[in-house]
Design a protein around this nucleic acid. Structure first.
Lengths: 309, 309
DNA sequence: GTCACGTATGAAAGATATTTTCGGCTCGGT
DNA sequence: ACCGAGCCGAAAATATCTTTCATACGTGAC
């Protein structure tokens, strides 16, 4: 009867209505691994390491392979956003097929102290490309669309971010200002809270934090949330504290980091892509006013550029 | 009995000792359809017509959809060379994923006002990836190595940038500070010049400007150049004014821009990659001091992060 | 150190999905 | 019209997946 229409509880375990991911799986594993238990991590690792192989296994087989139980495998599948193992397995098969037909597995080695500079360039470029692909694959377009809609009609937009994320916040604000919106970036926690108090329904507050646990950023978002503003969190940890106060969560990808390649680098790349998407989305929806505003901002800058040599 | 044997033979004729087909499924359906019974043909047709949709169905679902029974679905799967429906379904999911990713090249077009948000994400990600590849390919490693060498041993590093490039300048400085170097970012043209006057041989000045014609950035670089500091220009125009005063020029890529995708976006991506390369290069050369400095900066930030939810 | 608490984990029961069995049915030939 | 060969689907049998529940583990408090 209704067996076909499985009652899809909004993935009660964790994130909001996330649709099953096709190719975003590798990214999801990295993003969510930190919030997993040890046994689950073993399963996630196996799955990420050999999608094709795991797709050939039943729950029991995968449980044995990873030295865990069926229950743990199912739990892992849930964490990754699937209704159960069956669907994870399907996605796995898809991923395997993509890898098969797709590109060769490229340079995955870390940057070493004695790498020649040319290798550094190649590795960094590759890593950042990977980060972009992962982010795009893992971005929840429903959440994004909601955030865009809110921002496009907002009376005012406040963006919070400290450290590297602070620069991303400024980048977003710069662009929003260019299309004639009212936006502010706050890196000072005190001023951020002071300003957040002024927000009300119809305003938008955006918090940017990779860890999702940066108190200096969570606090103003909480205040904005309580004041009735629409709140958005851009974070690499969709299960972190910051999401408590976020109406919409945009997840950035978490790439492996190494000593010479701080996490800040890839999280920044990822955050910027999200922010760009947000911006373009808003620009689309406010096109009537955005286009002329952009044009005049170019014009205004022209005289600050000297002619060529 | 004989019926069973027949079925096995049928499958054998379709593909002698063939392992489950990955993407050749559509072809197999065509090849084997004539040798199928009517009900099976209906199933095969459905499967070939909508792999993604069928992959989402259980054996019962597919049977209902095609107006047949579970047994027929299983028989069809056998004919197609799979041990059972489960495996056919897996292959179907793989095929769907391939088709999905295969139609990616369509994103070479500009972003339009009415593009759905998912397309925006895909296009932006693709464009930025392209930008990274271009930048990496066009980066002169000799110049980069020279800039790295100068920065690694500099008494002090000043970075100039205004507007979007100003954020890149700050990003670089943030990272250099983290590995214990003395670095400053200047967005205020007056202060930039004031500081540039203090520079001397052994210092490094870096100007970041996409157009290469931003007077506010060229001016301090000129001053630094005349004071004997080693000067570096990061620009998208290697023939522009700024390079007059640059000992080393690092070229960023210039991507096409469109109304909804300001040049600032891709130039920023490109500049950040260059800056990252510069940073990692410097970190390599100052590894002895950089590594512990990085470690302690992480530690210092730890207490600003609350625990998880 | 030890105690209490919350959490993670796997064994087994319970629910679904897939495969097999088996008897009815259609359809072509005579 | 009759006969038989093979197609077909309902339902039983099996495999697979999911849920439940009791235990063990780790963690923090005292």
């Amino acid at each position: 009867m209704t067996q076909e229409v499985k009652e899809i509880f909004g993935s009660a375990s964790g994130g909001p209505g996330t649709p099953p991911a096709p190719a975003a799986l590798a990214a999801k594993v990295r993003t969510l691994t930190p919030s997993m238990t040890r046994s689950m991590q073993r399963v996630a690792e196996a799955v990420a390491g050999d999608p094709a192989g795991c797709a050939a296994l039943t729950v029991t087989g995968l449980a044995e392979l990873t030295g865990t139980s069926e229950a743990t495998v199912v739990r892992t599948a849930r964490i990754l956003g699937y209704p159960g193992y069956r669907d994870l397995r399907l996605a796995l098969a898809g991923l395997a097929a993509q890898q098969q037909s797709g590109r060769a597995p490229a340079i995955t080695t870390d940057i070493a102290v004695d790498d020649p500079i040319a290798d550094v360039v190649a590795k960094l470029a590759y890593d950042e490309q990977q980060t972009l692909a992962d982010t795009a694959a893992g971005l929840d377009t429903v959440q994004l669309a909601a955030a865009v809609a809110a921002a496009a009609t907002a009376r005012r937009i406040d963006v919070y971010g400290v450290g590297a994320s602070g620069l991303v916040a400024q980048d977003l604000v710069q662009k929003l200002l260019r299309i004639g919106l009212i936006a502010h970036a706050h890196s000072d926690p005190h001023l951020a809270v002071t300003n957040a108090v002024q927000l009300k329904a119809g305003d938008v507050a955006i918090a940017i934090t990779h860890s999702g646990a940066t108190g200096d950023v969570i606090e103003p978002l909480r205040v904005a949330f309580e004041r009735g503003a629409t709140t958005v969190a851009i974070t690499g940890r969709p299960d972190s504290s910051v999401t408590q106060y976020a109406d919409h969560v945009l997840t950035t990808s978490t790439a492996r980091e190494s000593e010479l390649r701080p996490a800040a680098m890839s999280s920044r790349t990822s955050q910027l892509l999200v922010v760009d998407c947000l911006f373009v989305g808003v620009a689309q929806r406010t096109y009537e006013t955005a286009a002329p505003a952009l044009a005049s901002s170019y014009e205004a800058l022209a005289h600050r550029h000297r002619g060529r040599t």
